[in-house]
Write a protein that binds this DNA or RNA. Structure first.
Lengths: 230, 230, 230, 230
DNA sequence: AATGAATGAGCTTTCATTCAT
DNA sequence: GATGAATGAAAGCTCATTCAT
């Protein structure tokens, strides 16, 4: 057996796997760096150092830095929706349970954690001047509006395009968005229970026919916020 | 009698005025550039070109770019609060009118316009990795919470630190924050009337004792969204 | 009497005095800065800050920075020779006493102190690439050679241009120069007594007819060097 | 058997060699520039132009200009000692021959030439305000003192720490240092023979038991100074 | 396929100098 | 005469990208 031949051209399967691994490593290093240092602070050198891969790799896999950022944004959005939809689909079939599942997923550790929220806001920050990033933020919004809209339409028993359904959807998503902003600004002091309670309190008021929301207000009422830190 | 005490530094008024004008021009150029090109895209060269001032000016007035950005953030926050508080103080004295005034100010053209919303989000995007920017976002949040909290406490006739008041404040601000996010993502399609209607609908539901919110839902119901742009 | 006229045009004597004071202050600030920060580290801003005068003053009095540096070099050299010659002229009339006086002056606190030695070496460092500075270093050397040469000629009872006189002068100045270098490199550990002793030891050997040098070797023998520092 | 362990990084020899060559070229260009234009006149642009390498290279190999200067100073000092010690070790074994060899090396073309003397003085000029440069000048001095001290101790048959040995060493180095200063100020008119003669004359006087120094005075007596230049 | 030395455009900042006040 | 705000060339440095190895 000739060793040198093997080292120079590894089995094609291995090679493809290694390629995919490098790609993933670069995307993760990019997201980590954005979370830590922001978009402006994420240089190719930083990504390369974090990933422990070679400099040329980025241009080999993604052509340029911009494209890598885009793929990183796509990866973030994909993870988000994968988690959200899996969570929602596991909920029992009533629309109110689906809505609740969506809200709780959005406020759960898996989604609302310092790293990913930092990245979402970092991409948004550059989205205005960087249309491609905007696309991912926008897509998230559109898909969210569809998913929530469907649940709200069922809840109100009305057409998804009726003003009532649209307003309910609009408000629910706005509340959620507001909670993200709150978390972004004070992740240390943020109280997930309180955030849920506030949303359910508003939903209980606008959807008085569904007592489940009022019950959830009570259930989330006892939560005490815990201060982290030194 | 006016003493000519200024003989040693003649006519300092003109020079001082010109200095202040240059300072302001640099801050405005910086904010303009951030709105257009984001934080990462705002170089000293870009600011200098926009302001039609000289390169050295930035370091003369602000020492470095970072400090200029900070002063620009401060200027943005100052303008925001100045407008908001002026608007609220002009409202008739009832707490519901003050709350309404605050909401309408936050959703009005003066505050919710493409330029300033782009800048707020741009600063936020870098806030995580750049603590000094965070301070401005955070301060806005804290002050907003106080102002809204006072109005909500009066509305509910309860202590500002009671859970009900806190939740109402929390929800109202979250809704508003959600509307900003909505505007940020689709300023073309954004419908100020719809945004107001949604917020008032939720407030009407949680504050049934105040019919004014329900009336405002109806009043904002007829708004049609208008597509701008090519 | 019209006051404003006086404030705008003070008595001509006062003005000239103030002008000379400013000039001197700028030169001293320049020399201080060169001692502290070197030639490369001495910017106009630094000089202006040190002198507490206005920025424009430098160009008013010296046209440009280069010229100010030249005047500072001249001022340094003038002070040096003024002190040296006064010291030598105070010595009793024999040539050996004059030579000794010159050597002791060159190694005394007034001349061999951290500030002035730093400045001499700083100017020398730039002298090669900056001919005007070279001129001052060179002039010092030429004048020193004349003064020492005259004393050595008398000592040897030979013509100043004879090889013996030239070699003695050459060697004496070289020894002195070597001591300066020694002081420059280790001003903390430098022992003036030891430096004198070494020079006198060499002179005693080459000038056996003058027992005064041998006596001075003994007189400077007991000096202990003292280490400064933490 | 030679294993092809380098398959993953093929032919590293060529790349490494090229890297080392670039490093060396930058150091040489820096030294050339310092000789011509001084420390203050040696900008990155100048070095880059001289070396015909790219701008980024300096920061690739040395991180920053300061570090490059330091490496250049180290390179200068290394060359100096390499030459000096090789020269001294080639001399016949007697201490007087070693001392003579050291002196002649220090005054020889290889060491005492316009380029290197300009660089030594340029570094010294900034050494006071730039401690790292001082280190190299200081190290040279310390090593020189050791080498000369050892030879002088043997000559006098005394302990290296005795006052006589220390004074002889001190004086010999001071004379040499003085000759460097002389050369620095007038390299055109400098006469190596005369410099040697002066030093040997002083050594002959303080070391009467070694007739070799007196012989060298005579041997260097006939030298005529030759004017170079236009 | 993978590497990392090399490139040079463009970055922030410093600077000597100018000139309206 | 004196001031210091203003200028813009040039400084040191960082960066995404290229390409020989």
């Amino acid at each position: 057996m000739e060793l040198s031949a093997r080292t120079q051209t590894p089995a094609p399967g291995k090679r493809a796997a290694s390629k995919a691994r490098s790609r993933k490593a670069l995307i993760e290093a990019t997201l980590d760096s954005i979370a830590e240092a922001g978009i402006a602070g994420t240089s190719v050198s930083r990504i390369v150092a974090k990933s422990a891969l070679s400099r040329g790799m980025i241009h080999l896999h993604f052509d340029n830095k911009e494209h890598l950022f885009l793929e990183a944004a796509r990866s973030l959005a994909d993870s988000y929706f994968e988690h959200l939809l899996r969570f929602a689909s596991e909920a029992s079939g009533t629309p109110e349970q689906r809505l609740i599942a969506l809200i709780e997923a959005d406020l759960g550790e898996e989604i609302l954690n310092p790293r990913s929220i930092a990245i979402w806001y970092a991409f948004r920050g550059e989205a205005r001047s960087h249309n491609a990033f905007m696309a991912y933020s926008d897509t998230r919004d559109r898909r969210l509006r569809q998913i929530y809209g469907a649940a709200c339409a069922e809840l109100l028993g009305a057409d998804a395009r009726s003003p009532e359904v649209r307003d309910l959807t609009h408000g629910a998503i706005a509340l959620l968005e507001g909670m993200w902003a709150d978390y972004f600004l004070h992740s240390d002091a943020f109280d997930r229970g309180a955030a849920r309670r506030v949303i359910f309190r508003f939903l209980a008021a606008v959807l008085p026919r569904y007592p489940v929301f009022a019950e959830l207000v009570a259930a989330n009422g006892r939560a005490r916020r815990v201060r982290r830190g030194p």
